[in-house]
Amino acid sequence: MNKMIKDFLRGLWDEHPTFRIMIGMCPTLAVTTSAINGMGMAIATTFVLICSSLLISMLKKVIPGGVRIPAYIIVIATFVTTVDYLMQAYTPDLHEALGVFIPLIVVNCIILGRAEAYASKMPVIWSAFDALGMGLGFTWGLTLIGSIRELLGSGTIFGFSVAPDGFTPFAILTSPPGAFITLGVLLALMNIISDKIAQRTRANQQKTAS
């Protein structure tokens, strides 16, 4: 049980898909022009991730090793098509804003990566937890990047205006170069934070040792 929780939490920080392993970068950079777009994209991806991890884990004994990758891709593409049509019907504005990046969830390496590295070997419930953890990690990552870019780039957050009067938005942050620079700076901050954490644990260990 403990190990299951550990596997679940791994996706939220230690093996965070965006900030640590750096996979699934295209949607991360492309759709995070606002917090709501980033979050919508991440939730759609999480849905596909959980569904395909579940199904692949159930089918792991049926799928022959030699054709497993094409088989996984078919499973993933099926769920992506479902999400695509669901979003077109229920959230047409978001569907319009995300555009070609919804069908492109198929080639998001996070999903295929989890299928290959985890779901194809582990029991169904474990795979679901792992997928949920990775999905939530992806969601907070994209929402954070989207919020920063929206806040500084247009002075709003989730569409609500929060900037004081006289604030000139940095329009560059909502344009393509801003995506790269925001993520680059965030990664550097992340490195500083984890260095600090590592130093503190080392100091604590030394203290208990002496």
């Binding site: 750096m22 170069p177 801003g178 995506a179 790269f180 620079i181 993520l183 680059g184 700076v185 990664l187 550097a188 490195n191």
Partner: peptide, 10 residues
């Protein structure tokens, strides 16, 4: 990765 991304941004 961080400097690579900032380079890409420029």
């Amino acid at each position: 990765a961080a400097i690579a991304l900032i380079t890409a941004g420029l």
